[in-house]
């Protein structure tokens, strides 16, 4: 009898894999890494723009998730969100330590998120809500989009964004707030019955 190649770990939900990892099931961990490695590495690479640093950070993120799987609480959010937040925070830490120079606003990888250059088969955009968020991001003014991207992906404070964009602090704060609330409203309107 030929055993199927796909294992139960490959098909298990994220929460089950994390539970298995917390109990020391390496197969669950391998399946979890395999499932998210492209997204975690992609996020780190987008923030750091250095493949070597991005791999280090992505590895750190998985190691941290694996070794802290026992504290993951599915009631507080999705596993993907938890993992990507870990990767984002580690990327920002690495960026602050290893690349202190200011960001060139014209070289923001994530400010171009809504450029429409994404591959149509991208699994993330298969999620209807995320596709709406993607479209909403394309629809807000560029200055607001850049402010949100600088804060969300690079961890830049309003003061830092004001300096990077050469605008008053109040303007930077307004851009952040207006950009984020517009995104929220766009998604909320779509979600309303």
């Amino acid at each position: 009898m030929v055993r199927p190649r796909a294992t139960s770990s490959d098909e298990a939900p994220d929460e089950a894999l994390l539970a298995g990892m917390a109990l020391g099931d390496e197969r669950a961990g391998v399946a979890f890494v395999r499932r998210y490695q492209r997204r975690v590495y992609g996020l780190a690479l987008g923030i750091l723009r250095d493949p070597g640093m991005a791999e280090d950070v992505a590895q750190d993120a998985f190691v941290r998730a694996w070794t802290h799987a026992s504290v993951f609480d599915p009631r507080r959010g999705a596993a993907a969100t938890w993992l990507l937040t870990i990767a984002r925070n580690l990327s920002i830490d690495a960026l602050r330590v290893r690349r202190p120079e200011p960001i060139d606003p014209g070289d923001l990888a994530f400010a171009d998120l809504a450029s429409g250059e994404r591959l149509p088969e991208d699994a993330v955009l298969a999620d209807e809500m995320l596709a709406r968020l993607h479209d909403a991001l394309a629809g807000i003014p560029e200055a607001q989009r850049r402010a949100v991207a600088l804060a969300a992906f690079y961890g830049r404070s309003a003061q830092e964004i004001a300096e990077i964009e050469s605008v008053p602090l109040g303007t930077a704060k307004s851009r952040i707030r207006m950009g984020l609330t517009k995104l929220r409203d766009a998604v909320s309107v779509e979600e309303a019955p």
Binding site: R38, G42, G77, A123, V124, D127, H134, L137, L180
Partner: peptide
């Protein structure tokens, strides 16, 4: 904010 992170383009390590 959490959902924004999921918009980051994936890349093969």
């Amino acid at each position: 904010t959490d959902d924004l992170l999921q918009l980051a383009p994936a890349a093969s390590p």
